[in-house]
């Protein structure tokens, strides 16, 4: 048996783990609060370095293949480290997800603080703050109420609206009736801006702009089934059914072929190049943060 502490099932000793986690959290919280301000930045950098170091080690350290930590022992030091990293990864990922989930709590706290202050001081447009808080609380209350009902009455098929009760209906109205509709409405407004911009800005002012305009029009036309079908049929008719070289050449002028050529020959390499550049930039930024070279990373 070669389980690391991470490989233990926390649900087996749930109370102990919750209690232990709580005590450790409180100790860490007060520990950090008591740390002198000058020491906080190096502390943050140390945590960043260790976290980043784990991910680097996990990515590059050789790991044993088909290794079962429950029944096998590592053969050497390399396997021991590899096995430890392998077993620890899931837990480290959970850490990251839990920390990310805490950001949600921080966001709610921040929203409450700002908008309650707005309401208390009756600042300009404080009514909107009331609407925001009421909307947020309604969604939380009815969301959980709906969830509790669904969990509590397992025999009922809540997919069928005829079995819904008031909280289920209100949840559906808030989520599907309001939030989803408003989301869609906001997004669809973009269509108006795109059309207006196409009219006012998409103009053949220079050679480059004309090339861009021409290629864009070809790709747009290739997306229109009616146009693409008619164009391609016309080209096929022109080419005839002969298997000559000229027929093959003419078939290259099908709009779907032209659009495909544009996508595969120009668009894909351009995007690959951009992504490659972004990747290099990300690596350099990550290295700067990891090594504490970025301003604010280390005192």
């Amino acid at each position: 048996m070669n389980d690391t502490i991470w490989a233990r099932n926390p649900q087996g000793d749930l109370k102990m783990f919750i209690g232990g986690g709580l005590i450790l959290g409180i100790v860490l919280f007060f520990g950090v609060m008591q740390t002198p301000i000058q020491a906080r930045r190096p502390l943050v950098w140390l945590v960043t370095f260790l976290s980043g170091g784990f991910m680097v080690a996990y990515t590059y350290w050789p790991k044993p293949i088909n290794f079962d930590a429950k029944t096998e022992l590592p053969k050497n030091g390399v396997e021991t480290v590899g096995s430890f990293l392998q077993q620890s990864f899931g837990v480290v990922s959970s850490f990251v997800q839990i920390i990310a989930a805490f950001l949600l709590g921080l966001g709610i706290f921040s929203l409450l603080r700002i908008h309650l202050m707005n309401i208390a001081r009756q600042k300009k447009d404080w009514v909107f703050s009331v609407i925001l808080l009421v909307s947020m609380l309604s969604m939380i209350i009815f969301g959980y109420w709906d969830f509790m009902i669904r969990q509590g009455e397992k025999a009922v098929d809540f997919d069928d609206p005829q079995f819904w009760r008031m909280p289920n209906m209100v949840r559906d109205f808030l989520f599907d009736g309001l939030l989803q509709q408003m989301d869609a409405a906001m997004f669809s407004i973009i269509a108006f801006f795109i059309l207006s911009a196409a009219y006012r800005a998409f103009r053949a002012r220079s050679v480059e702009a004309t090339i861009l305009l021409g290629t864009a029009l070809l790709v747009i036309l290739s997306l229109m089934g009616v146009v693409a079908g008619a164009w391609d049929d016309k080209v096929a008719a022109l080419a005839g059914d002969g298997k000559t070289g000229s027929a093959d050449f003419i078939m290259n002028f099908k709009i779907t072929e032209v659009a495909g050529w544009l996508k595969n020959t120009f668009q894909t390499p351009a995007i690959t190049g951009i992504k490659f550049g972004i990747g290099l930039g990300t690596i350099s930024m990550a290295l700067r943060i990891w090594l504490g070279l970025e301003k604010g990373g280390k005192a």
Binding site: I194, L195, A198, Y199, R200, F202, L213, L217, I220, L221
Partner: peptide, 8 residues
């Protein structure tokens, strides 16, 4: 959109 680009 194509028509609007043309008019523009």
């Amino acid at each position: 959109m194509i028509i609007m680009i043309g008019i523009g």
